[in-house]
Each structure stands twice: as C-alpha cells, then as structure tokens.
Amino acid sequence: MRGGGSGFRAYAVLYLIFLYAPILLLPLFAFNDSTIIAFPLTGFTTRWFEELTTTPALHQAVRNSLIIAVSTAILATCLGIFAARAATRYAFPGKAGIIGFIMLPLVLPEIIVAVSLLVVLLQIGVKLTSFTVIMGHVLICTPYAIAVLNSAFLSLDRSLEEAAVDLGETRLSTFRLITLPLIMPGIISSLLISFTISLDEFIIAFFLSGTEPTLPVYIWSQLRFPTKLPAIMALGTILVALSILLLMIAEYFRRQGIRRAGGKDSGGFL
C-alpha cells in the first residue's frame, strides 16, 4: 500500500513540474542579464521590464487587448444572462435547437470559425478592426457564459422571484433586487472567464484584427526577433502575476457569494 502511495506522489510531483516548470522559467529569464535564453544565468537586471515601458507598439497592443477583452466579457455575459434565463425559465418552441446552435462554437474548431468569419466579413465589406475581433470573441465566449450562468439560474429557487412579485415588486425590480444579487457570483465568474478567454485568444484575433493587433498577436509577431525574446519573457512574467491576482479575486467573490447565500462551500476551482 505504502509503495503505491509514494508512486502516486512521485507521479503527482512530476506532473506538477511538467505543468509549471516552463512558467517558472519565465521570471528567471525575465530578470537575466543576457539576450540569450539559456543557462547559466549571467546576472540580475530589470532592463527588459524597462524596455517594455518604452515600446509604444506593445502599449497599443495591450490597449487593444484590454478593450476587446472587457467589451467581450460584458457583451458575452449580457447575452449569457438572457439566454440562460430563457433556457431555465421559459418553454418555447424550438428551444433545444436554438440553445444547441448557441452552444455549438464550444466544439467547433476555432480555425473554422475564424476563417468563415473572415470570408463573410470581407464579402460584406466590413473593415477589420478591434470591433470585428470583439464580434468573433463574443461568439466563442457566449457558450461559456451561458454554461456558467445556467447553473447559477438553476440553483436559484424560482419561488424567490415569485415571492418578490407577490410582495409588490415588478418583474424588473425583482430582477434587480432578488435575481441579480443571487446570481452575482455566476455573473462575476462569467465576466472573468470571458475576459480571460478573449485576452489570450490568438487564432480569431490573428485573422480578424487587421492593423490593430492584440497582445497575443503582437507577441507572436515579436518572436521573429531573437533580441526581443527577453522582453517577451518579462511581459509573460507580468501576465502570469496578473492571472494569479485575477484568479484570487474570482475565488474571493465566489466564496463571498456562497457565504451570502448561506450555502456550504463544496470546493470550486481553488
């Protein structure tokens, strides 16, 4: 038994190393005083971070990415709220089919979505800008938003909304006073998931961004220049730190949501 246990432990350790070692290399080389990404390390520097602050193209890419990710998160979550509410509260003809089509991008290869969107947009003569990227990202993020919000609506007792209406509130004020606060953890999850997906999405952004590259597209374009590599490492380090921060915020809100609704914490992702 003990042998089996330590076997599994070794497996788990190896697995974690495999998963995280490459990410740990990022900060290592980001602070390494050499343009060559190789051991041994030569010295400590913050030069690469300084270089980031003086690259206008990068700033533009970050700005584009943030605008796209925030817009996508908000749009996909709003659409997700409507769709999830309709799916969980109403019966209408063709419901299963409609929901199925909305969820389809979840399993569709992204390259197919990207190419077909590009063809359609070029056909109808739409200029490729951040706006077209937002459209593409909303398309692929909405299914995730619906999946998250669906479970939020499902765990919401329907008679809570009826009770509020019974006590004199309108449908709209009921949504604001009862539904919204109780599905808020779901909304925040949906926002964060959509934001994250949009932020690091490459294929659709690459096809549809035109002359306004997003951060992943910019990084990809910089990989052609070996001297830029350490700066990319520095950028990666910042992104990892931000991701961890974002996850911690998300987890905080999730726990708070559970506490407010009086439920028991049954795990979650963290």
Binding site: E162, L167, I178
Partner: peptide, 12 residues
C-alpha cells in the same frame, strides 16, 4: 399574499 411551500426566504 402567498406563503410558499419552500418559504422563499430571500437568503441574501
């Protein structure tokens, strides 16, 4: 006014 079977007490 109604008293629901699940009581429908607003948990928040």
């Amino acid at each position: 006014n109604m008293v629901f079977q699940s009581y429908a007490i607003f948990p928040h």
